[in-house]
Design a protein around this nucleic acid. Structure first.
Length: 548
RNA sequence: GCCCCGGUAGCUCAGUAGGAUAGAGCGUCAGUUUCCUAAACUGUAGGUCAGAGGUUCGAAUCCUCUCCGGGGCACCA
């Protein structure tokens, strides 16, 4: 759907370039000025051209604007002004702006969405926590952001697969099995000195209890890597899936690292490295020639024990993503991974894969603040707060919103008290309140037999009304921008601004009690706002309550 | 020592390929409800955009250096 206003101007400039040749070589940058007196859109093209043409920018601006006015449709563009050092400011006709209301009504739940990337397949890999314990708040940011990425890509037409990659073998899982067995023996009355580097959490005791319930004391001689590990894995994974479900995340697929071995994919990659002379043996290990691929140093891919390091399966795993035909491959990691992915990318590139398709997104850590104190957490030490506990306390909407409302690149302070608060300090409620307020107004207007009408949209002339209309025109652009740049916080910011404009309108003007035509145009306006907020919240998977 | 992120109002943060007087919420203080939800709105106060150089008509934004905070630099994942 795009932004009609912007498209219109871009087309106008295209026509203009036939008249004024110098326009051709200059990129047109249109932005929305902060100050409404500076127009609906503004361009600095004259200033940029003045360097090249060695002419006064205001003079160039004058030539551009007079030609533009001749080409422009007066019912769309009301005014073009030259201001400041040479900005060209465009003012749209209020009646034209109001047309967005009709557009929203026509598109309904699809308003803001587009089919620009229809037919393209994307994968978002996220969470990918190994089943060694419940999801923590730290995983929460990854989970919510990843799912929101997927929602945003769907909103611009992508067919998206959400995938969870996990490893249920190796040292961690052995330690997990051991941990359960120790707790099991404790339950049977043995005195155990529980190792410090084992999983300390209460959940391990629960799993041990479960084993005891099902098998009694028959497993004293059983290997920790058998039944104990299997129980732990199954119970923990069920718990993880339940937690994800609690915040509305449904993974389409769970990819087990182990399949890479059984399907001989690891061997195949190794052979390929060898054939392309990208690996070598040294000190009993197999090394990857990363220094030849532009990275700092060579790294081990097979330890002298014969076990691969994480890099090798990671590379093989990504090859499956290519083979599965994705046009866009998104990996979302915490900042602790920031040094590892370049190795994987370099290797894939060396094997001939187009790494432009891969977008590695790194989010910074979550700092949990409780009672004004920073809480340090570790799964192993079990002093963490689980994601489930957080959802129980703060609710799904607040959790989803809080994890997404900040730029990924910055540390997120998660203030547990704030998220729990059902007050105006909590931005989720600000948005939801705007929505609920509209629903309430509409219940009243229905009683008074007033209904939305598109006949007299040109009556929407007040500043507060025009501001809302203009804001709505940008919705689709904001969604597309947010999706392509992986910035979900752009959507929450946009919605907060839209909600603020609505609240301002509400305080300044009345619907019930206004002249009928105006009242019905205003109803159409707020119905459109209602739809936009709902669609935006929907992308964030936050609910839009009709009553609060 | 090296690499990646960040440093903007008292607090939490926006600031979209460099643009016009740096914004919002919360918190301060002062107001607004016989009237569609006051979970709202209006006004007030609050800034050396970490610091120093540079690039240019113009820098919070780009470059260099310094300081502070976080993460990483394994034959762990």
């Amino acid at each position: 759907m795009g932004d009609k206003l912007k498209n219109y101007l871009e087309n106008l400039f295209k026509q203009l370039s036939k008249r004024l040749e110098y326009i051709n070589d200059e990129v047109l940058i249109l932005n929305v000025p902060n100050n409404r007196l500076q127009g609906d859109y503004s361009t600095n093209i004259a200033m940029r051209l003045s360097k090249k043409l060695k002419t006064n920018p205001r003079q160039i601006a004058a030539e551009i604007s007079s030609n533009l006015l001749e080409l422009a449709d007066k019912s769309i563009i009301a005014e073009v002004k030259i201001e400041g050092p040479g900005f060209i400011n465009f003012f749209f006709a209020p009646g034209f702006i109001a047309g967005v209301v009709q557009k929203v009504a026509d598109n309904g739940n699809n308003f803001g969405r587009s089919n620009k990337y229809n037919g393209k397949k994307a994968m978002v890999e996220f969470v990918s926590a190994n089943p060694t314990g419940p999801l923590t708040i730290g995983h929460g940011r990854n989970a919510v952001v990843g799912d929101t990425f997927a929602n945003m890509l769907e909103a611009i037409g992508y067919d998206v697969t959400r995938e969870y990659y996990f490893n249920n073998a190796g040292r961690q899982m052995r330690v997990l099995g051991n941990s359960v067995k120790f707790r099991y023996l404790e339950l049977l009355g043995q005195t155990i000195e529980f190792p410090e580097d084992h999983y300390q959490g209460e959940y391990i005791k629960d799993i041990a209890q479960q084993v005891l319930n099902d098998h009694g004391d028959k497993l004293v001689e059983e290997s920790p890597e058998g039944i104990f590990k299997d129980y732990a894995e199954r119970i923990i994974f069920d718990d993880i899936k339940k937690t994800l479900g609690n915040i509305g995340i449904e993974m389409k697929s769970f990819f087990n690292e182990n399949d890479l071995y059984t399907e001989k994919r690891i061997d195949k990659v190794l052979e390929e490295f060898k054939a392309k002379d990208l690996s070598y043996q040294s000190e009993g290990a197999t090394w990857l020639k990363l220094s030849k691929m532009g990275n700092e140093q060579d790294k081990v891919i097979i330890k002298s024990t014969g076990e691969p390091t994480y890099r090798l399966p990671d590379i093989a795993y990504h090859i499956t993503k290519y083979e599965r035909g994705y046009d866009l491959i998104v990996d979302l990691f915490g900042s602790d991974h920031n040094a590892t992915y370049p190795d994987v990318l370099a290797a894939l590139k060396a094997l001939g894969y187009d790494i432009e398709k891969i977008k590695v997104m790194i989010h910074q850590f979550v700092t949990v603040v409780a009672n004004g104190q920073i809480v340090k957490m570790s799964t192993r030490k079990a002093n963490f707060i689980t994601l489930d506990e957080l959802i129980d306390e703060a609710g799904r909407d607040a959790v989803r919103y809080f994890f997404v409302m900040r730029d990924l690149k910055t540390h997120l302070n998660f203030d547990i008290e704030l998220a729990k608060k059902q007050t105006d300090e909590n931005p989720v409620f600000y948005l939801q309140y705007a929505y609920a307020r509209i629903c309430s107004i509409l219940r009243m207007t229905t009683e008074k037999e007033l209904k939305a009408s598109f006949e007299n949209l040109d009556l929407l002339k007040e500043v507060e009304e025009q501001d809302i209309l203009k804001k709505m025109f940008h919705f689709a652009d904001e969604v597309e921008f947010a999706a392509l740049n992986f910035e979900p916080n752009k959507i929450s910011n946009y919605l907060e601004e839209l909600a603020a404009l609505f609240h301002r309108f509400y305080a300044a003007h009345r619907i019930i009690g206004s002249e009928k035509n105006l009242a019905e145009a205003r109803i159409a306006l707020i119905v459109a706002v209602q739809q936009a907020i709902k669609n935006g919240l929907n992308i964030l998977s936050v609910s839009a309550p009709e009553k609060m």
